[in-house]
Computed example of a mutant assay.
Amino acid sequence: MGNIVLARIDDRLIHGQVAVVWASHVKADMIIVVDDEVAGDPTQQMLLDLAAPQDVETLYLTVDGTLEKISQISFNKRVLIIVRDVSILLKLVEEGLPIKEINIGNMHFKEGKRQITPTVWMDEKDIEAFKKLVSLGIKCEIRRVPSEKGREITEFIQEV
């Protein structure tokens, strides 16, 4: 199984911040986007590939196909996983994906969500998913870029 060096929630998926800053920071040589829509859309994949560093391999997987595919990746690969939604990571963790820490980058406004930080908006479903992840011993930290001081999600979900 690939060596997961970062699991990130970012509804923009691959973009400059992820591709240049985070991939470099964790020395990733593979970015895996877990997203059913993107996994089935070669045009979106091509556009996301344009934002990825040339020396970093990209892979686009459906949620249901992720565990099987990741188990086939060499442990020598340093893998950065990106999803749009916390519920995807919760499902993958519950199915056995070995994630110890989650980086929360961008969860933008959608109807029914309230602002937690300038870049993170959540609804009750998101909060419950984060509570479950924390109860499983997974560190969940809001941090846009590596140079920024991270803030534990528990600072925000206890008060909400």
Rank of each mutant, 00 (worst) to 15 (best):
A19C: 04
R151I: 13
Q72E: 13
E95M: 08
V86A: 05
A23W: 00
A39K: 09
I142E: 05
G40I: 09
D123A: 05
S147G: 06
M1F: 13
P118T: 13
I82C: 00
I88T: 14
G150L: 08
S135W: 07
V21R: 04
L92Q: 09
D55S: 12
A23R: 01
I127A: 10
T58P: 03
K125D: 11
E68A: 12
L133Q: 06
V34P: 04
T117C: 14
L133C: 07
I73K: 11
I32D: 00
I4W: 13
F130D: 00
P98K: 03
K91N: 11
D10H: 01
E37A: 14
L136A: 08
A28V: 03
T43R: 09
I116C: 09
V26D: 00
I88V: 14
I127D: 02
V34F: 08
K91L: 08
I104C: 06
I153R: 02
S147H: 12
I138P: 03
C140S: 07
A129E: 07
V145S: 10
L92C: 08
I157T: 03
E111C: 05
V83Q: 04
V21D: 06
Q72F: 06
Q158K: 15
D55T: 09
H15E: 08
R143A: 01
R151Y: 13
V38H: 05
Q54K: 14
I73V: 15
E141R: 12
L80W: 07
V56W: 09
L6C: 14
L136D: 06
V5C: 07
T58F: 03
L92P: 04
I70E: 04
I81D: 01
E68Y: 09
R144V: 12
E148D: 15
R151G: 01
V134L: 14
V134A: 06
N106S: 07
V18Q: 04
N76G: 02
I88E: 06
K132H: 15
M107F: 08
D11K: 05
K131C: 01
F75K: 12
E101S: 14
I99F: 10
T154V: 14
W22R: 01
T119R: 15
N3V: 04
T119W: 12
I157C: 03
L67H: 01
K69G: 00
G2T: 14
E57T: 11
D29L: 04
D11N: 15
L90P: 04
I102G: 01
P53F: 01
V145I: 15
E111V: 11
L97I: 09
P53H: 02
L90G: 09
D11E: 10
M46C: 00
G65D: 13
L67T: 07
E159N: 14
N103M: 10
N103C: 07
N106W: 13
A19T: 01
G137P: 04
I142V: 13
M46F: 10
S24R: 01
V5H: 07
R151P: 03
I153D: 04
L92D: 04
E111R: 09
I127S: 03
T154S: 15
A51C: 10
M46H: 11
P42T: 02
D11Y: 11
Q54L: 08
Q72W: 02
H25P: 00
F130C: 06
I153P: 02
V120N: 01
Q115M: 15
Q44S: 00
V20N: 03
L97V: 11
K131D: 05
I9Q: 08
G137K: 02
